[in-house]
């Protein structure tokens, strides 16, 4: 994810990439109506090669969004419906004793994780042991079974969904696993106008057929451009100050952080913000990351990384609200205007 080039991407390159991504976004918007912000966040995370956890009530189109993404990207797609009896090997694959040429031997049968785009549906319904099977795959992008390590295809994305209700019989994702998701995107309901449009355009509720808009080669080119997006030092400083201030012991931490946060974000959170901001910049056709991109991706990148105190729930504070307070209190520039100057 680091930027090793010395020149900014050329304007025409950026325009080309932006046009390709715009096609992808348009396709996804046809699948998931009225969810432009959610789609932007998912695409930004995708461009940053990060994993996304989609959280929302059933029937909001989370699964359809992921499926639409797989179709438009021409990538390998597998879906795992997480259930309590799901085993780790059901994800990673396992060795099966097979007889071949008169010889019995263990043959590795890859699990559904060996794909480009993995939909982990209702991930919180599987046991922690099974959830942990995804840990190595998500972070290391490889799987180890019986002492053999196998790399996963490139690119590899995990898009998981979870239901915030019906929590009986579920296993909330541990903090370590949550940390491996670049974004946790809250999928909210749609308004009346969107519902009307759904009713008028979809007879049985199925999404419109989608055609691939990006080939894997295109996607690699896009990733290469994302890597050349420049992050100015002032913006990096802003990200660092934001993440540092998410810890209650930091001098710049705002009052909500001091009151409701037990543990702030890990450095992985800062990395996630930086990478996602690059993806967002490319989405906007910019050769560099700005303060605005950081503000845009801070909430989905940080909210699930904050370990909140029990009082936060009592007071009605969640991670996004704390991050909003954080963004409100931390100035984007390290040294702001003097108190005697006011922006017009």
């Amino acid at each position: 994810m680091t930027n090793h080039t010395d020149a900014l991407p050329a304007p025409e390159v950026m325009a080309d990439v932006q046009a390709r991504i715009a096609r992808l976004v348009d396709a996804l918007r046809r699948v998931m109506l009225g969810k432009e912000q959610t789609i932007d966040e998912v695409v930004a995370a995708l461009l940053a090669r990060g994993h996304v956890l989609l959280e929302g009530l059933p029937g909001l189109g989370k699964t359809e969004l992921v499926k639409g993404l797989s179709r438009t990207l021409s990538l390998g797609f597998r879906r795992i419906q997480f259930t309590p009896d799901l085993l780790p090997t059901d994800i990673t694959g396992s060795h099966i004793l097979q007889e071949r040429d008169g010889r019995k031997d263990f043959t590795f049968h890859p699990g559904p994780v060996f794909t480009n785009l993995l939909l982990a549906d209702e991930i919180n319904r599987a046991s922690p042991k099974t959830q942990a099977a995804l840990l190595e795959a998500m972070q290391e992008r490889r799987v180890t079974t019986f002492g053999e390590t196998r790399s996963l295809p490139d690119p590899f994305f995990v898009l998981a969904t979870q239901n915030p209700i019906e929590l009986e019989g579920t296993y909330p994702l541990p903090e370590a696993q949550l940390d491996r998701f670049m974004f946790k995107v809250d999928v909210a309901g749609v308004d009346r106008g969107v519902l009307e449009e759904i009713l008028l355009t979809r007879v049985h509720g199925e999404p419109p057929p989608l055609e691939p808009v990006l080939t894997p080669a295109d996607l690699r080119d896009v990733f290469a451009v994302v890597d050349t997006v420049h992050m100015p030092r002032a913006v990096a400083s802003y990200i660092a100050r934001l993440v540092a201030a998410s810890h209650p012991g930091d001098a710049e931490a705002p009052e909500p952080v001091r009151t409701f946060v037990k543990y702030g974000s890990s450095p992985r959170g800062a990395i996630a913000i930086g990478a996602a901001a690059r993806g967002m910049a490319v989405l906007r056709g910019k050769p560099n990351v700005g303060f605005d991109e950081v503000r845009r991706v801070a909430a989905p990148a940080l909210a699930h990384r904050l370990v909140l105190d029990y009082t936060a729930r009592l007071e009605g504070w969640d991670g996004r609200r704390v991050v909003a307070a954080l963004l409100e209190s931390i100035s984007d520039v390290e040294r702001g205007l003097p108190q005697t100057l006011g922006a017009r």
Partner: peptide
């Protein structure tokens, strides 16, 4: 507006 292009061009 926080576009960042000015910062980027000053550095690159």
């Amino acid at each position: 507006g926080g576009d960042g292009l000015l910062l980027a061009l000053s550095e690159r």
